[in-house]
Design a protein around this nucleic acid. Structure first.
Lengths: 206, 206
DNA sequence: ACATTCTGGAAGTGTTCACTTACATAATGG
DNA sequence: CCATTATGTAAGTGAACACTTCCAGAATGT
């Protein structure tokens, strides 16, 4: 044999660059020429690594989850007792969420969801996010009074908070201070509210 | 002069068709040829009505809001006292939300938000949705005990519920029954929870 | 040294698609 | 009836772009 392949190294090297391009430009405006230039190679090099543009985008999607998970786990390590983990994550996300614009990759993916591969990738991504949040919510809740929402619902609602916060950021509709309040206040409410709170029967309606 | 223009009539006639195409296919996969065929005319006819594809999409965006508003107002008329209006809307959306797939237009818009015109249209759309929900939340809350979330935050969170519910529907991650529960349970909680509920101080943390 | 396989650049290629043009015809007002 | 302006059709046009091909040279193992 001769000259071992370095494609895997390149793949790892280019992945953040590719993901950054999709985050900055969305799916459509990313051209193979643009990607090649950012990576400092010819287009054909990229096509040796990934079969097509679709595959490049899928890799970027995966990168979104990997990058987020990495940040979260760094945080969880710094919270050894696991007690305030949920609150810490919430407050971290409240402040730093979407700083790298990774959510734009998610937006791009949503509008390409008719492609089965992208759809599967998006399912995976959202499924993982949801499962992660759900675990945190469950861990955060003591065994005290009965929660108002079951953990699955609460987790989806919290994912919704993150999504709408990013929409608000993207469109310039919600300033950073309000995004913080949104995530923090509504996030705590969704996770912590107890059963009796959710149903103020007859109290408010005449 | 001779032969008055019927372009405005055509515009009104084609708008739902155009919006339907964008809802079904997203921005990219909608071609001018496709639009023309659906409208039953040649492409240039469409270009006499709208300046470019961008303008067609903007019109579709506006249509999303118009269609939603129309459905809501129909509902509000049927609830004359205005008392249970919020709950009715919530339960209606919980069941029928996104039936026509209009949210896909929104997803498409999010990933085209780098275009200034589309961005402005999206701002408008989300701004209107938020303002509407906010009004409903405020009206729904009595002058009773202090709410846990201020109306603006609560309204954004509820918009987030709707968004994530649609994401879950689009990706096949949340079944219709769970979407109903999500909107209804979390929606009520966000709108109705009172201050004391949100801060169970020291109760849960050792 | 040498056969082999990887590498990067540059120049295609074929297609898709937004948008245009040309023209023959149908309505309208005067 | 006639000048004028709208209308639908059908055929273009030019550019963008995903993806390929070619090739000369550089690394490797034997």
């Amino acid at each position: 044999m001769a000259r071992p392949s370095t494609l895997e190294d390149k793949r790892r090297e280019f992945l953040p660059i590719v993901a950054g391009a999709f985050a900055e430009l969305g799916y459509r405006r990313v051209t193979s020429a643009e990607l090649a230039e950012r990576c400092g190679v010819g287009e054909n090099v990229l096509y040796r690594i990934w079969a097509d543009k679709n595959a490049m985008f899928l890799a970027a999607l995966e990168w979104v989850y990997i990058a987020s998970e990495r940040a979260w786990e760094r945080l969880l390590v710094e919270t050894p007792d696991g007690e305030g983990a949920f609150l810490r994550l919430l407050s971290y996300e409240a402040q730093h969420m979407g700083e790298q614009g990774l959510y734009r990759i998610v937006f791009a993916g949503l509008s390409e969801a008719d492609d089965p591969r992208i759809r599967a990738g998006m399912r995976d991504l959202y499924g993982r996010f949801h499962a992660f949040v759900r675990r945190q919510v469950t861990a955060h809740r003591g065994s005290g009074s009965k929660p108002a929402l079951d953990a699955e619902i609460a987790a989806w609602a919290i994912v919704g908070l993150g999504t709408v916060a990013n929409v608000g950021r993207e469109l310039g509709l919600i300033g950073s201070e309000r995004r913080r309040a949104l995530l923090w206040n509504a996030g705590r409410l969704l996770a912590e509210a107890t059963d009796v709170d959710a149903r103020p029967r007859g109290r408010r309606r005449k």
